[in-house]
Amino acid sequence: MPESSDTLTPELRIGHLYPDQLNMYGDRGNIITLRQRCAWRGVTLRHITLDLGETLRPDDYDLLFIGGGQDKEQDEVARDLREVKASALREAVESDMPVLGVCGGYQLLAKFYRPAEGPELEGIGILDAWTIHKGKAVARCIGNVALQWGEQTLVGFENHGGRTYLGAGAQPLGRVLAGHGNNSEDHQEGCVYRNTYGTYLHGSLLPKNPHLADHLIRLALRRRYGADADRYMTPLDDTREWQAHDAMLRRLGVTPRHEAAAVSL
C-alpha cells in the first residue's frame, strides 16, 4: 500500500482496460488529459494496460478506464471481463476506486446489451442499467451533447445505436440539455454508482471537461493519500479548456454557467 505522502513525488496508476480492443473515438484523449493534468501538478500518472486474459489486482491501481470499440471486439472483451476480471473489478468499485467507462465501456459495466438480432451480451452489472438496440429502422444517437452535471455542464459527442435505460434506484450522470443522452426519451445521460462513471460522451470527454477530469484525479488522490491529498490539486489555467467547452455550449444554445465555478477549482 502507499507510502507516506510527504516523502515521495505523488503518483497515480491508471489501469487502461483493453486498449487494443476498445480504442475508438479518441479515448486516447482521456488518458492524455489525465496524465497531463497530473503532470502539471507534479503528480506522475503511470499508464498500465490491462489486456485480454490479464488478471486485475485492485491494489495495483488508483483509477480505471474502459473505452469503446467495434462490435466484434466487444464480444471477446465482454467474455474476458466476466470470466477473468469481474470479481476484482467489483471489489475495486466497492472500495470507491474511480472508474470511467465510455460508450462501449459504459455498456459493459451495465447489466446487458440486447442487439437487434443475435444473442444478448451479458455485462458485469456494476451499473444498474441495460441497453437495447431497436434495429436499423431506429436512427443512431449521433451528435454533440450538453449535460447539466450538478451545478455545472458537460459537453461531448455521442454515437450509439443502443438505447440505455436505468434501474429505478440508479443515478444518471447528468440531465440532457442538448442531444440524445441514454435513450433520447428520458433526458438522462450516463450512470453513476459510487465513484464509477458510465457515459456515452466522447469528443474526447475529458479535455473539454477539465472539471470532470480533476474530479476523477481528486478522487484517486484522496483514496490513495487521504483527505490532505487535496493540496496536490493546485489550480490550473484552463482558459483554453473552457473556450472549447463554451464554444460548444453556445453552439448548442446553452448558456455557459460554470464561469464562476471554474475559478474555485
Binding site: Y25, G26, R28, G29, N30, I142, N144, F157, H202
Partner: peptide, 9 residues
C-alpha cells in the same frame, strides 16, 4: 466528420 474526437488519436 462531425465528431472531432479523432484529433486526440
Amino acid at each position: 466528420g462531425e465528431d472531432v474526437s479523432w484529433i486526440w488519436d
